[in-house]
């Protein structure tokens, strides 16, 4: 049975698309047939992060409207087997997403995939609601700062009340907290909320902590999911998170500030 995972946050710019790309790619690398669906109609980004923007012909809205079939719209990833992307439309707006249309597309994707990763737009409007409505699991992406935590809290409330599982009275959506842009040095200096603080406020299980890293930005700009950069700490942290999402027990890393050596302190390296 295919599983629908929504990557959501409420707040914009916290790393939803980066996370969707990384988690989708990670699941596919472990051999699961995975599709990442971009719900950000009108502001599509996923294709850029995945480096397939030049191959977009048809999109999600075309499929909903019956102007193309799924196979025409799905873009197979060239680097990882088992991975495809369903891009969003750039020329339409969120109203193009109807509940029946989304359900039809997801039902069809379920037949041929193990995991459907829904990349939610920011906000709590239609696009975000549609991305989460049919989800089985939710990855709530949060930055360690108060406004992001507040918005995540709001999203968690909506996940519990306005999704199909909630409305039908089924088992609630499984919620996972993913803390991104985490900088232990700044936490130590009191400039950032710590993992404990965020966990305490949101009281949901921690899926992973992704350290703030230059590799995330450069990976995005190259159209390369950061999880493929196995050298980077962010890439490794995402790999850990994917394994935890699949039920493995993996110890958390990158929570502590690295001790700086004498040389790096002298030469100001990071």
């Amino acid at each position: 049975m295919a599983e629908i995972i929504v990557v959501t946050s409420g707040k914009g710019g916290v790393g939803k698309t980066t996370t969707s790309a990384a988690i989708g790619t990670g699941l596919a690398m472990l051999g699961h047939k995975t599709v990442i669906v971009d719900f950000d109609v009108g502001l599509r980004n996923l294709d850029l992060i995945m480096g397939c923007e030049r191959r977009v012909v048809y999109d999600f809205v075309n499929v909903i409207n019956g102007e193309a079939n799924l196979n025409q719209a799905l873009i197979k990833d060239k680097r990882v087997d088992n991975l495809s992307i369903l891009p969003a439309s750039q020329t339409r707006d969120k109203d193009a997403l109807t509940q029946e249309g989304v359900q039809k597309v997801l039902d069809e994707l379920k037949k041929t995939h193990d995991y459907i990763v829904c990349d939610s737009p920011a906000g709590i409007e239609k696009g975000a609601m549609m991305a989460m409505y049919f989800a089985d699991k939710a990855v709530v992406v949060t930055n360690p700062e108060v406004s992001s935590v507040r918005d995540s809290d709001r999203i968690l409330g909506i996940l519990q009340s306005k999704t199909m599982r909630a409305e039908k009275g089924e088992a609630p959506i499984q919620e996972h907290l993913l803390l991104t842009r985490y900088n232990p040095e700044r936490v130590d200096r009191g400039e950032m909320l710590g993992v404990k603080d965020v966990e305490d406020i949101l009281s949901i299980p921690l899926l992973g902590v992704i350290p703030e890293s230059k590799s995330v930005l450069s990976a995005s700009n190259q159209g390369q999911p950061v999880i493929l950069d196995i050298e980077s700490d962010a890439g490794q942290a995402y790999s850990d998170a994917v394994r935890r999402l699949l039920g493995e027990n993996v110890e958390h890393r990158f929570l502590m500030a690295a001790k700086k050596g004498l040389l790096s302190r002298m030469f100001g390296g990071r």
Binding site: R150, D153, L156, G157, Q160, S203
Partner: peptide, 8 residues
């Protein structure tokens, strides 16, 4: 018995 979230 469940957390009451922001906005609720």
């Amino acid at each position: 018995t469940t957390p009451i979230r922001s906005g609720q």
